[in-house]
């Protein structure tokens, strides 16, 4: 059997590769970055929602199953430059640092993932301009190292605000979809901070709180056990106080029906999920249709998000839309099975 190509080594791709190997299928795992684990590794995710287990505890074992696995040929820092149908499968050219090799693969799993929204595009929040406006992926790393400090003066913050839906549900920047993660991750961050530093006050500015399904529990706990406060309204702009030391979030409290200009020491932006650059490239390489949002379109979205409807091509993870880590890992398992069935037929 020709190897099965897994493109992307985030949670979904790692999971697909590990399952393929355990089915005994030769696997070609290609990752454009130099590390394994995708966005969670890149941004040093701290604890995962909802059970607050360290990200390493979830991804570590997956990475171990993939690394040094005789069934898995691993290429980091590599990409697929070209792909053409060849028999039942594809012929691809695999481009590594300074080598290009042509390989034949029997099936393809696209696990190319997402990119965090570039918060600089939401310029009214001053990200990239005011040092104390953070993207929540950066806060993840700070929480992970227990160094939640204001970048401007290195002092611990007294009061933090989270702004939800940054780069999501926003037609101005062209992203009308919901990122699914922003609410739960922000709430989780607030809980983590309040757990360690109850002296820091945490406020979350929301339009809706979408901690869907069983995550609701974390939302309730955040209020009842950690005193996280929720203010309804979307912040319109961030500016500096007169002395320039603190930030001011200008918005409307829609419950109060009044404008608010409240000072904060740190403002954290819950940046949304966009189709990853790898996802765009993959759609072009393998002629996979994308929806208006730019994510790969499954054959029947109402049925499953794995089958592409194209011969030998399967999807896993956030390449088809915003997704939580456990969902991505589960899809990796499903895609492995589908690709294996196809390749063996």
């Amino acid at each position: 059997m020709n190897p099965i190509l897994v493109l992307g080594a985030g949670p979904a791709g790692l999971s697909a590769a590990a399952e393929l190997a355990s089915l005994g299928a030769p696997t070609l795992l290609v990752e454009k970055e130099s590390y394994l684990g995708g966005n969670p590794t890149r941004w040093h995710y701290s604890l995962l929602a909802p059970d607050l287990r360290p990200a390493e505890e979830i991804l570590g074992p997956l990475i171990q199953r993939v690394e040094h696995n005789p069934k898995i040929e691993l290429h980091t820092g590599s990409l697929i430059a070209r792909a053409e149908p060849e028999g039942k499968g594809y012929r691809v050219s695999l481009q590594s640092k300074d080598t290009v090799q042509t390989r034949e693969v029997s099936a393809v799993i696209l696990a190319t993932g997402f990119d965090h929204f570039d918060s600089r595009r939401k310029f009214e929040y001053g990200y990239g301009h005011f040092p104390d406006v953070l993207d929540f992926k950066e806060l993840e790393g700070m929480i992970h190292d227990d160094k939640v400090l204001r970048p401007s003066d290195g002092k611990p913050p007294r009061r933090i605000a989270w702004i939800l839906c940054v780069g999501s549900r926003d037609i101005q920047i062209g992203n009308p979809w919901c990122c699914r993660m922003g609410c739960v991750v922000s709430i989780k961050q607030a809980v983590e901070i309040r757990q360690k530093h109850p002296e820091i006050d945490a406020y979350i500015y929301y339009m809706d709180v979408r901690t869907y399904g069983l995550w609701e529990d974390l939302y309730w706990k955040s209020m009842q056990e950690y005193g996280v406060k929720f203010i309804r309204g979307r912040i319109g702009a961030v500016s500096l106080t007169e002395g320039g030391k603190r930030l001011i979030a200008t918005g409307e409290d829609t419950i109060l029906s009044r404008p608010t200009e409240v000072p904060f020491d740190l403002i954290v932006l819950a940046s949304g999920m966009e189709p990853g650059t790898g996802t765009k490239e993959a759609s072009e390489l393998f002629h996979v249709p994308v929806g208006p949002e730019g994510f790969l379109t499954p054959k029947l979205s109402d049925m499953n998000t794995i089958d592409s409807g194209l011969p030998g091509i399967y999807f896993a993870g956030a390449a088809t839309g915003p997704k939580a880590i456990p969902d991505a890992i589960t899809e990796g398992m499903g895609a492995a099975l589908r690709a294996f069935q196809y390749a063996r037929e």
Binding site: Y203, G227, L256, R258, P259, T260, E261, V262, P263
Partner: peptide, 16 residues
């Protein structure tokens, strides 16, 4: 002025 310019955690802390 109708602009709210502060949040007073003291109230909820006391009530709690």
């Amino acid at each position: 002025s109708r602009v709210q310019t502060d949040l007073d955690v003291g109230i909820v802390d006391w009530v709690r």
